[in-house]
Design a protein around this nucleic acid. Structure first.
Length: 129
RNA sequence: GGAGUCGACCAGACAACCGCCCGACCGCUCGAGCAGUCAUUUUAGGCCGAGCGGCCGGGAGGAAAGUCCGGGCUCCAUUGGGCAGGGUGCCAGGUAACGCCUGGGGGGCGCGAGCCCACGGCCAGUGCCACAGAAAACAAACCGCCUGACCGCCUACCCCUGACACGCUGAGCAUUGCUUUCGGUGCGUCAAUGUUGUUGCCAGUGUGCCAAGGGUAGGUGGUCAGGUAAGGGUGAAAAGGUGCGGUAAGAGCGCACCGCGCCGGUGGUAACACCGGUGGCAGGGUAAACCCCACCCGGAGCAAGGCCAAAUAGGGGAACAAGGGUGUGGCCCGCACCGUUCCCGGGUAGGCUGCUUGAGGCGCACGGUGACGUGUGCCCUAGAUGAAUGGUUGUCUACGACAGAACCCGGCUUAUCGGUCGACUCCCGCU
């Protein structure tokens, strides 16, 4: 029943996005991080009832715009599907060059690991949350 | 059926679920404001803005790319012209403009449909041309070819002399004449109708052969002097090509045809083509070398530009008020700095705008070989801004390539899986 409720609320409007440079620098400096060969994820708590996510996919990832768009869409899609687990967090996902050559499924697996890892870290010390 | 050329087009489709951006409408909540406008008895409400929800509509490309050209638009500069710099380069047309396109001319490739060309000027000047080659530019002689002179050599023939062999003879021998008991010609003959030692010796003559010398002709080698630009060789390139004549050998030296220059005519808007005449013939290449000639070009770019405008620092003006503080100074005057309020100007973060109706598409008619133009009807077709147009699954026997709008257009170039259609060419087969 809660599953159907969750399925009904999987939107990612623009308010759920980090769009301005100050918000990015705040998360990158204060937050804790989780990284592997595809992504580096930075997280910090916010005072909102939902998560916010920002993307950094530079030209270092790929010089081809289509590839960068694909990576960004994958990140947004994963955050959209897992947003209820990440309530109250500001996240910044930095893509690495390996993401450009990987399949979409591999990227989804990697991102899920990041989310669960961040939730674990967030529960233990809890000054941020 | 196979091979090929040109042009146009498509750029996965469908379904389910979950999403993103823009817009219209409806509902709820909040904000601003009675300045305007509408309704109204008033409080106050709609038109405005923001958020949320619902529903509907729309949402990347043929190259969106490279940023290589050309324009629009915006701001700055600007009388005109010149210099510098950059660009373009057969002709004509199209266009807002172009380095684009169309048509034409010339050259090259292909059997052909077709394709390709950076296609003005090196008798204005300057520079460069490696290696090879005799020589790379007021041309030049290495080999070769030819002529002459000189010095050799070889061959053939002739003349002369000599040696040897043989024939004939002892004044003959040889040759010759249609005059044959006769003559001509060459050499010889007064030494003997020879000698005596008889297969000898001497002499004459003829033939053969050899040797030396001389002459003529031809060939050949060397040296020197000259002629030659046909041939060889070098090179990307060596004073036009082929043939005939000509010549000692050769040569536009002469002639024919081709090529080239000049002059004239004809056709064409022109590039250019054709025809006639004329000149024996100009003269290497390189101008994506400097350069010359003709034509074109002001600069920066939507992070342009415009509007609103927190915070902070500083500026200008007015009023408050002629009072105080700090510094300088022994003190006064003086000088510098410091106050409160309001306004102005500038302007960062941020927001709004520019921002999509445009040299716009599609159809039809007309003009034009065509690019295109004119007229007319219909259509509205992304507008994001940390940047939307997506994700997962399934089906389609197989689903893919290159690749993501960022102010807007016109081109060029580059990347690219597979496929559809049309026109045309060549080959094969059948009728």
């Amino acid at each position: 029943m809660s599953d159907t409720l969750a399925r009904a609320r999987q939107r990612l409007p623009k308010a759920y996005r980090l769009l301005r440079p100050p918000a990015f620098t705040a998360v990158l400096q204060q937050g804790f991080k989780s990284r592997d060969r595809w992504f580096a994820v930075f997280a910090a708590s916010n005072a909102l009832p939902h998560m916010r996510i920002g993307l950094i996919v530079s030209r270092k990832v790929s010089m081809v715009a289509v590839v960068r768009n694909r990576v960004k869409r994958q990140i947004r899609e994963s955050a959209r599907r897992h947003q209820q687990r990440l309530e109250g967090l500001d996240l910044v996902v930095v893509a690495h060059a390996a993401a450009a050559d990987s399949e979409n499924a591999a990227l989804q697996v990697s991102l899920q690991r990041h989310w669960t890892g961040i939730i674990e870290k967030c529960r233990k010390p809890s000054p941020h949350c």
